[in-house]
């Protein structure tokens, strides 16, 4: 177990502080589908942002600003909760 830290140097209770260098890229596991939005229909309710389990909805100045495909796993929740039915799942071509 070389290189592993001894118990005295571990955070209390194993609490882990976020490390920006280790930002997860959950988009690497995407299902084969990705969300696509028709911005003309978007009412900016941000329900997709509320429900997205992977923080993949980008919001800029309080407004919907697209998807972060580094994080999106293609779960389809945003498409399911969108009240304007303006998010569709499309084939993910990589």
């Amino acid at each position: 177990m070389a290189g592993l830290r001894p118990w005295e140097e571990l955070p209390i209770g194993g609490a882990v502080e976020p490390d920006p260098a280790l930002r997860p890229r959950t988009g690497g596991w995407r299902t084969g589908l990705r969300p696509q939005v028709d911005l003309d229909g978007c009412v900016n309710c941000l329900l997709c942002w509320v429900y997205c389990p992977d923080s993949a909805i980008r919001v800029v100045d309080g407004a919907f600003a697209g998807f972060d495909l580094d994080l999106c796993k293609g779960c389809e929740i945003c498409a399911a909760v969108c009240p304007a039915e303006t998010i569709a799942m499309v084939a993910d071509d990589g």
Binding site: P6, W7, L10, G13, G14, E17, P18
Partner: peptide, 20 residues
């Protein structure tokens, strides 16, 4: 100071964390 608690620990760290 956001942080995650209740983390998973494999055989490489469980022993040390319980020893705390």
């Amino acid at each position: 100071a956001p942080r995650s608690q209740g983390m998973f620990a494999m055989p490489d760290y469980y022993f040390e964390l319980r020893h705390q």
